[in-house]
């Protein structure tokens, strides 16, 4: 403020600025556009968060992670390690981003942040869970096998399990006593040894041609199975081990 302005009251200074046209109000359209952009950003955030989290649910089903708890503590540990944490982290960041935007709304900021944060997380989580089997994911998965869609292909192509981590998925090619021959992807065959302590599903009889997931330790060319779990016909043929999201340096299993 200059000395002349200091002598005047704020009211006079502002009135003078308005008359001189130094201050102009934003039009109604400006705020309409601004609101449209905010609503679009929130919707986009919701969609992206839901897409990412439903991808996590989808991928857990598609790569068999969802069955890992059937193998006991070792299965749980493996599930924890094999989750796509980068994508989960992305979804969490989006939830906080959404909270930041909706927090400006009267009905939201009048409540504790924990409520709105929990509400947004619940909406994204539940919607994602119910959308885990939606055709978009299957479509992307199928297309990613042949096409090179930016980011998407990498996300979908590199899913599966790491064989070094003691999980094998394949089709039973033969059953001889306590041994199962398992045909993995790209015609690699493994011999699975079924032991007393091997966790097996109750009332399920394995037969040739079944798709299964095996967790166990390799010893002298055989896999001493900790557990065997049957897989759905729909998912079995899709398994591709060595999935590590956004880490293209990881080789695909041969």
């Amino acid at each position: 403020m200059n000395k002349q302005e200091e002598k005047k009251s704020i009211s006079e200074v502002i009135q003078a600025k308005l008359k001189e046209g130094k201050v102009e109000m934003h039009s109604k359209n400006y705020f309409i556009l601004k609101n449209i952009l905010i609503v679009s950003a929130v919707l986009f955030g919701l969609l992206l968060g839901t897409f990412l989290l439903s991808f996590v649910f989808f991928i857990a089903q598609a790569n068999g992670s969802v069955f890992l708890p059937n193998f006991g503590f070792r299965g749980w540990t493996h599930l924890f390690v094999s989750l796509p944490w980068l994508i989960i982290f992305g979804a969490v960041v989006i939830i906080f981003f959404l909270e930041f935007f909706v927090k400006k709304h009267t009905t939201v900021y009048r409540q504790p942040i924990l409520y709105s944060l929990f509400f947004i997380a619940a909406v994204v989580f539940l919607t994602s869970f119910f959308l885990r089997t939606n055709p978009v994911h299957l479509n992307f998965l199928d297309r990613s096998e042949d096409e090179d869609l930016p980011i998407i292909s990498r996300m979908y192509r590199h899913y599966g399990m790491d064989a070094d981590d003691k999980v094998y998925t394949g089709q039973i090619s033969a059953i001889i006593d306590d041994r199962i021959n398992l045909l993995l992807a790209q015609d690699r065959e493994l011999e699975i040894l079924v032991l007393k302590e091997t966790r097996l599903p109750k009332k399920f009889v394995f037969k040739t041609g079944d798709w299964v997931m095996v967790m166990g330790e390799e010893e002298a060319g055989q896999i001493r199975a900790w557990g065997i779990h049957p897989l759905d016909e729909q998912w079995g043929p899709r398994f591709k081990p060595n999935f590590r999201p956004f880490m293209p340096s990881m080789p695909m299993m041969k």
Partner: peptide, 9 residues
């Protein structure tokens, strides 16, 4: 001044 500029909102 901010109030005047944003008064349409």
């Amino acid at each position: 001044i901010k109030a005047f500029v944003n008064i349409q909102s």
